[in-house]
Amino acid sequence: MVYQNIRTEDRGRIRYIIISRESKLNALNKDTLFELHIALGDALHNDHIGGLIITGAGAKAFVAGGDIAEFKGMDAEAGRNLAHENHKNIFNLIEGFSKPVVAAINGFALGGGLELAMACHIRIAADNAKMGLPEVTLGLIPGYGGTQRLTNLIGKGKALELIMTADMITAAEAYQLGLVNHVVSQDHLMGKAEEILQKIITKAPLAIAAAITAVNAAGTADGFETEIEEFAKCFNTNDYKEGVAAFLEKRKPVFKGK
């Protein structure tokens, strides 16, 4: 597929997905969301790709939110369909992705942009980045998982404060809250994201996928049972056998995701 609103680039086993609407601060209109869904599916089913980095074009914005012009005239049913479709096709898909996904937050991450970053497994922010959920200033609330994922990441009280005040926070404040994993200079952002992904993709791919599934279940009624089940499944993989053999033979394992 020829993309109009995003770009993809492979660097070894890492695939970059770059939201590329720089003149619109990389806002997520419906066409961009559709292309993002296609790109995610392509990466998921490409055996050569070990992990993803999602970022925005330019130095100003990761993603500055949804395309508000497209919301005009929508009623409750249209809003419900919009949220439901994009939860399924984008945000929940990323959260449950069986390969590691890192958000490289290179500028403003607001509204749907911050929700996109929060759906990723790991978040790295440039020191000039600013984040927030300003939806209440439009008479809305976050609809792409923001109320749930922000609460899980930083706690109920602070999540309510940020959502209800619509305040933006700096990268340093986001780090203090646990919203991002690391803060680095703009020049080192992609290098840091690649460094972390490179560490991850040398590990057993099926074990990484199992870890993502188990961690995503944390705090739910089935959390511990999910961990037990994923732990048990690992014993049936060739990667488990290779990992144990390599440990006993004092060599580096060669995992094949089988």
Rank of each mutant, 00 (worst) to 15 (best):
M1I: 07
M1Q: 09
Q4R: 12
T8Y: 03
R11K: 14
I14V: 13
I19K: 10
E22V: 11
K24H: 11
K24D: 10
A27N: 07
K30R: 13
L33P: 00
F34C: 00
A43S: 11
L44N: 04
H48L: 02
I49R: 03
I49M: 06
G50T: 06
G51A: 02
I53R: 04
I54M: 06
A59S: 08
A61R: 03
F62S: 04
V63E: 08
G65M: 08
I68E: 12
E70T: 11
A76D: 09
A76M: 07
A76F: 08
A78I: 07
N81S: 12
L82M: 13
E85K: 14
N86L: 13
I90F: 11
I90G: 05
E95Q: 15
F97M: 12
K99P: 09
K99D: 05
A103S: 15
I105G: 06
N106K: 06
L110P: 09
G111K: 05
G112F: 09
G113F: 07
M118G: 01
C120E: 06
I122P: 00
A125S: 14
A126F: 10
A126S: 15
D127Y: 10
M131I: 04
L140E: 12
Y144M: 15
Y144C: 09
G146I: 13
G146V: 10
T147Q: 08
R149A: 12
L153M: 13
I154Y: 12
G155D: 09
G155E: 08
K156C: 05
K158Y: 03
L162I: 12
A166R: 08
A171D: 13
A174G: 10
Y175D: 03
Q176N: 15
G178T: 06
G178W: 14
G178V: 06
V183K: 05
Q186Y: 13
H188T: 12
M190L: 13
M190A: 02
A193T: 05
K199Y: 07
T202H: 02
A210V: 06
I212A: 09
V215Q: 13
N216K: 12
N216Y: 07
G219Y: 03
D222R: 09
D222L: 12
D222Q: 13
F224Y: 10
E225S: 12
E225R: 10
T226P: 12
I228E: 14
E229L: 11
E229Q: 13
E230G: 09
F231R: 10
A232L: 12
A232I: 11
N236P: 07
T237W: 01
T237P: 03
N238H: 06
N238V: 00
D239C: 01
Y240C: 02
Y240M: 05
A245R: 02
E249P: 00
K250W: 00
K252G: 09
V254E: 01
F255N: 04
K256V: 04
K256H: 11
G257C: 08
